[in-house]
């Protein structure tokens, strides 16, 4: 295991296209909130993680969604992840609420457990596909077909609002 869990560059092959995904973690503490734009500008996707046992973290995710929508419009693919489903018994955010909210803002919702490494790979893969789709439709709109085989760099920004983040390293290793 690497000594850091802050960023990861991942080369993937999606539908025969080589993509290079840069996954960046951002500091989730409230005091660093104002620095967000530096991290997420130019990024194609964002994963917003909340703790299903902590209602407060879900409302923070809502704030982040608002901010990202305001700053980047619809150019960014959003994922909302309800983490710690291994603690289903202590759930404080209902599945219906979360999924309904995600749908209302055009984000995809996933249930994950970083501890058990559940649902994470799937989420990253889906997000990568979505990002590729939206960027290649941009390329076609621009009339450049040669760009599709060029290597594009995608950035995923992870905004992490979990109170305690046991193993985000596991989360990165998709």
């Amino acid at each position: 295991m690497s000594s850091q869990a802050s960023f990861l560059n991942k080369k993937l092959n999606i539908g025969g296209k080589r993509v290079n995904i840069a996954i960046w973690d951002t500091a989730g503490q409230e005091r660093f909130h104002a620095l967000g734009p530096i991290y997420y500008r130019d990024s194609n996707g964002a994963i917003l993680v909340y703790d299903i046992t902590d209602e407060d973290s879900f409302s923070k995710v809502k704030n982040w969604v608002k901010e990202l929508k305001k700053m980047l419009g619809n150019e960014i693919n959003l994922c909302i992840a309800g983490n710690k489903i291994d603690l289903e018994k202590q759930r404080n955010v209902t599945v219906a609420d979360a999924e309904e909210y995600a749908q209302s803002v055009g984000a995809k919702h996933y249930h994950t457990s970083a501890k058990l490494n559940k649902g994470i790979e799937e989420m990253f893969l889906e997000l990568s596909k979505d990002m590729l789709e939206s960027s290649s439709s941009d390329l076609l709109g621009g009339g450049s077909s040669s760009g599709s085989n060029a290597r594009k760099s995608k950035t995923v920004t992870i905004v992490d609002d979990e109170a305690a983040n046991e193993s985000s390293g596991g989360g990165g290793c998709c």
């Binding site: 690497s2 000594s3 850091q4 869990a5 973690d25 951002t26 983040n165």
Partner: peptide
């Protein structure tokens, strides 16, 4: 810095530990 966090807390550093 990653080494510092690793040595101080014994876990790989995420951005929450790294930036401060």
């Amino acid at each position: 810095i990653f080494q510092i966090v690793q040595a101080s807390q014994g876990i790989p550093a995420g951005a929450d530990d790294f930036l401060p």
